[in-house]
Amino acid sequence: MPVVGAVLHLRPGLEPPTELDDPRITVGERNGDKLPIVVVTDHRREDRQLLEQLEASPHVHAVFVAFVDHSDLVEVSP
């Protein structure tokens, strides 16, 4: 299960995008125009799609990743 911590850089003066109303996203405490979030998805392609959707929002000018867990992909259970 992919877990990604990311930082949304919001456009000045704009509220966070409505795309954040998604059960897979946990929103942290806003710091100026930066908003920390955590994305937890069932499949890795979902987190990428979610982050791309957020980056495409007119309220967001960039999304950067601060943390990613790869263990679901590289640790194969016996």
Binding site: G5, G28, N31, K34, D69
Partner: peptide
């Protein structure tokens, strides 16, 4: 993940 993102923000 949240701690890292909060720190980076």
């Amino acid at each position: 993940a949240m701690a890292a993102a909060t720190a980076a923000a």
